[in-house]
């Protein structure tokens, strides 16, 4: 492997995927049989393949930034494939990305996204704007569309602190790579709907960090309550959702002990009159 230098007209610039293509090492999975969108050969559909899926991730804005959280369960069909998967990642110092969908390509997409943001920053000497980062992720989701058409859907969630505007911002995506800025909160994955409803009911302008974290945890709890593919708090193994915040100081992941404690408080408060034991008393 020699030093990768290019002639001026041929230079990939700060674009890492373009660099990989120029070096003859294209990214992404080889296409399955058939053209994009064609029905797959019998038995080869992604639904029949043992493909791991990640489930519910949420993001919400608070006074100083954004909170992002994701459950830990990965499923293969109706089986639990992994109990402690990470779905929330730092994209760079001031942004975070979370994933739902086919776990393999999703984690790969995150790795590529992280590499691209850092690559741009180093080559250009400046950090991309938050909008620019959201756009980059858009392109990656769009490139993945043929695979999505064959069943390996990846839908990320992107949030970060916009240093130019001094506020947290959230972007949701669809399989075509469209990205949409959300005013206050967003969620994706199989339990995303339940999670989002919970956030919607509890959200208000100017939440502080602690309140926002509690709301995210509650949203994941409610999603796990309704959706079989979303993992709730695992008290036996001590596995709790990954929760991170991004503010002007950067990305910060809460430690599992703190999340556990907050879960304890939440479950305690839910006990009052809501969950009843068969005997009719409140469960604690």
């Amino acid at each position: 492997m020699g030093l990768p230098t290019f002639l001026p007209g041929d230079d990939p610039g700060p674009d890492f995927p373009a660099l990989m293509r120029r070096l003859g090492r294209p990214l992404g999975h080889p296409r399955l049989e058939g053209a994009p969108g064609d029905p797959l050969p019998a038995g080869a559909g992604a639904n029949q393949l043992p493909v791991r899926h990640g489930t519910t991730v949420v993001a919400l804005r608070y006074g100083d930034g954004v909170v992002m959280a994701g459950d830990r369960r990965a499923t293969e069909g109706h089986l639990i494939a992994h109990r402690a998967m990470d779905k929330v990642f730092p994209a760079d110092r001031h942004s975070a990305v979370a994933i739902a969908g086919a776990a393999g390509p999703a984690v790969e997409m995150v790795k590529l996204f992280q590499t691209q943001l850092e690559h741009y920053e180093k080559v250009e000497g400046v950090v991309l704007s938050l909008e620019g980062k959201a756009n980059q992720l858009s392109q990656m989701v769009r490139e993945h569309l043929p695979m999505a058409m064959q069943g390996l859907v990846v839908v990320p969630l992107f949030a970060g602190y916009d240093l130019a505007r001094s506020r947290g911002r959230i972007f949701t995506y669809d399989v075509t790579g469209g990205h949409y800025e959300e005013a206050d909160h967003g969620a994706t994955g199989s339990g995303g709907r339940d999670a989002r409803t919970t956030i919607k009911l509890g959200w208000r302008e100017g939440l502080d960090r602690s309140e926002a974290v509690d709301l995210a945890i509650k949203a994941l709890y409610e999603a796990a309550d309704e959706d079989s593919a979303t993992g709730g708090p695992d008290l036996v193994r001590g596995i709790f959702p990954v929760v991170a915040t991004v503010d002007s100081e950067g990305y910060l992941q809460l430690d599992q002990g703190e999340v556990a404690q907050r879960f304890g408080t939440l479950v305690g408060s839910l006990g009052d009159g809501r969950v009843s034991t068969p005997a009719g008393g409140a469960s604690r």
Binding site: F16, L19, L23, H119
Partner: peptide, 9 residues
């Protein structure tokens, strides 16, 4: 930077 990033990737 290109060498390092491609290798690390």
């Amino acid at each position: 930077v290109r060498h390092a990033d491609t290798k690390g990737y």
